[in-house]
């Protein structure tokens, strides 16, 4: 699925400040269509901030971000177009508690893509089957387990038929026994050719499906490479130390 001519995401020298605090210090990254990228690094290193700049949940202040040929600028129309092409899955699920599972999933296709209800519901049921919980369609999010909620969140993001999926620590709020059910869905998605940027410390997932990994520290990319390269022979001392910490505890 790799098409090395035209990257689907281009980030050039991206900087972000929170007040005086320099949270992103010149991030460069190009992602090809169909690539699975894993981003990891210590807490506060700017991983969330970085993937949230890609769909403008955070505004970057210097550098360029180009998603699917659209430049991210102050133009609201561009921002909305990019958001339609990117799905996002959050650590805290962020499902809409006042809507049923089915309504959570059909909302954006109906209001943003202007699909009719029948089409949106058909798509929603197809996705719920794909993530393994079609029988929960009529329930409210509060009635589901964490793992089920996160799978609904994935289905909800996929319902817009995005070209890119962003995941911000999708399993860190889950009890251990539910992590696998969510990772399985993500692995299946990765193998189906979806372009994915995943912030995670699940190294099993990275080993199984990541094409490249990026190690973030203090707002910079310290090192990147294939999982093989990084696990076997990290070049930087900081990467080595961090990997040994998360792999042996």
């Amino acid at each position: 699925m790799k098409n090395s001519n035209k990257p689907i995401i281009v980030c050039r020298d991206v900087h972000k400040w929170f007040g005086d605090f320099h949270a992103l210090r010149g991030i460069d990254m190009e992602v090809q269509q169909g690539e699975v990228i894993v981003i990891f690094g210590p807490s506060g290193s700017g991983k969330s901030t970085f993937i949230r700049t890609i769909n403008r949940l955070e505004e970057h202040q210097r550098g360029d971000i180009i998603v699917d040929g659209i430049e991210l600028s102050h133009d609201v129309r561009n921002i909305e177009k990019i958001r339609e092409e990117t799905g996002m899955v959050f650590q805290q699920f962020n499902l809409f508690p006042h809507l049923t599972v089915l309504q959570n999933i059909t909302l954006a296709p109906m209001w943003v893509r202007k699909w009719d209800k029948a089409k949106a519901e058909e798509k929603a049921m197809e996705l719920l089957t794909r993530v393994g919980i079609p029988e929960q369609a009529a329930k409210y999010p509060g009635q589901l387990s964490g793992g089920q909620q996160q799978r609904v969140a994935i289905a909800r993001a996929l319902a817009m038929e995005p070209k890119i999926m962003l995941f911000d620590e999708p399993t860190s709020a889950l009890d251990p026994e539910m992590i696998k059910e969510v990772l399985d869905v993500m692995i299946e998605l990765a193998r189906s050719g979806m372009t994915m940027l995943v912030v995670t410390h699940e190294m099993g997932f990275a080993r199984a499906v990541a094409d490249r990994m990026f190690f973030f520290d203090k707002g910079e990319i310290v090192e990147s490479g294939t999982p093989k390269e990084l696990f076997a022979s990290p070049k930087e001392q900081r990467t080595k130390l961090f990997l040994s910490q998360i792999l042996h505890h």
């Binding site: 339609e84 799905g87 996002m88 962020n94 809409f96 954006a108």
Partner: peptide
């Protein structure tokens, strides 16, 4: 954030 991320205005 969830609403914005899926393209709702």
């Amino acid at each position: 954030e969830a609403a914005h991320a899926m393209g709702l205005n």
